[in-house]
Design a protein around this nucleic acid. Structure first.
Length: 275
DNA sequence: GTTATTTGACCACT
DNA sequence: AGTGGTCAAATAAC
């Protein structure tokens, strides 16, 4: 990947926009190669190895697409240096349709609401294949069809928002259903109840593995579809307990509010080998 | 009976 | 005025 870039910058230092274009080109190429690789690994005869390989390729592909989204967003919003939630709190000048300079239409970003005293609430966006896969208990309180969005946006608040006054909320919007569904998860506010739900190491091989319990009812149709499509690794018949193999939730959560970078860089890919 | 989800209505924001 | 976010009554699941 680096050779192409190197050859392009022999004479003089390229402008940052040129470097960004080059990075986008490379990422697009990488995405195509990942698709190709996905087809190849599907030919692996051993089911276990094949599934693991397919999952890994999917993560690679998703990571690159996430990076592409970030870079393309910067191009379409030149006033923004990074993808900054505060900067995109409201809708953009296109009215929120996402059609900027001929770019691919995007679904509306979450409206950035203000808390008491007009202080903007901390927000973080995460692109993931398993939006329900965190160690918190969420209660759904709403669902809304979003303009120009293919799928409705689901609204969750911490299941202990009443008991412990936990202000954490989560919005989930499916963005794609091709192959494996992807969800843009918007996390709002920190969990003040976090101490009540410590990580519990499991007996499985990976320290990052966790067994998470989700009732069937807590999954909305799109998430059920995700489960059915295989995006969710295991589905217990009764409790819908899902063994989320190796998904690094420390990454998911550490990338969340407590460590939110000061520049607002927040579009995180939540990877995890093996699923 | 208890708890969670659904969904229409209302409110806030741009 | 249009749209997103939240509320709360009705409903479903257990």
């Amino acid at each position: 990947m680096s050779t192409r870039l190197n050859s392009a910058r022999k004479s003089q230092p390229p402008r940052s926009s040129d470097r960004r274009d080059a990075a986008i080109q490379e990422l697009r190429r990488g995405t195509q190669l990942a698709d190709l690789l996905r087809k190849q690994v599907k030919l692996i005869p051993e089911p276990n190895r094949r599934d693991a390989a397919v999952a890994n390729v999917g993560e690679i592909s998703m990571a690159m697409e996430s990076s592409l989204n970030i870079l393309q967003y910067e191009i379409s919003s030149p006033e923004v240096g990074t993808v900054d939630m505060a900067a995109h709190a409201g809708y953009s000048s296109d009215g929120g349709t996402g059609e900027r300079n001929g770019a691919v239409p995007r679904t509306r970003r979450v409206r950035h609401r203000r808390g008491r005293h007009g202080v903007e609430l901390p927000m973080k966006e995460i692109l993931t294949e398993a939006p329900e896969n965190d160690r918190f208990h969420w209660r759904k309180y709403g669902e809304k069809t979003i303009l120009n969005a293919e799928y409705p946006r689901l609204y969750y608040k911490c299941g202990y928002s009443d008991d412990h006054k936990c202000p954490a909320k989560k919005y989930v919007q499916q963005q794609s259903n091709s192959g494996h569904p992807r969800f843009m998860v918007t996390l709002i506010n920190e969990h003040t109840c976090e101490a009540l739900f410590p990580d519990e190491p499991t007996s499985s091989s990976s320290s990052a593995s966790q067994v998470l319990d989700f009732t069937k009812a807590s999954l909305s149709p799109p998430l059920m579809a995700a489960a059915a499509s295989g995006s969710l690794k295991k589905e217990e018949e009764d409790s819908m307990s899902v063994c989320m193999h190796s998904y690094s939730y420390d990454e998911y959560l550490s990338s969340s509010f407590p460590t939110m970078s000061p520049d607002g860089d927040q579009v995180q890919f939540s990877p995890g080998p093996g699923w």
